[in-house]
Amino acid sequence: MNVVLWLVAAGALGICEVASRRLGRGWPTAAQIVNRARGHLVGRAVLVVGWVWLGWHVFAR
């Protein structure tokens, strides 16, 4: 099973998160981006649709 590409993709996300915490103010963390999306109705709607789809995809399919 070839998981090298997945490790690279996960590493890129991890580097972004670590960079946001090391650089401090300015570079947003993943939680800050999600919180920003939650502040708007459209953002919340997108998050909720994605969340429902995820649950259906993992637990019902």
């Binding site: 993709a9 996960a10 890129a12 996300l13 972004c16 960079a19 946001s20 103010r25 300015g26 570079w27």
Partner: peptide, 23 residues
């Protein structure tokens, strides 16, 4: 917050997510 750092951070996050989608 440093505006340029925010923009660079958002671009970095977008690139990382695009890489994830591409994989």
């Amino acid at each position: 917050a440093d505006t340029s750092l925010v923009e660079r951070g958002v671009v970095a996050w977008l690139l990382a997510v695009l890489l994830f989608v591409a994989v």
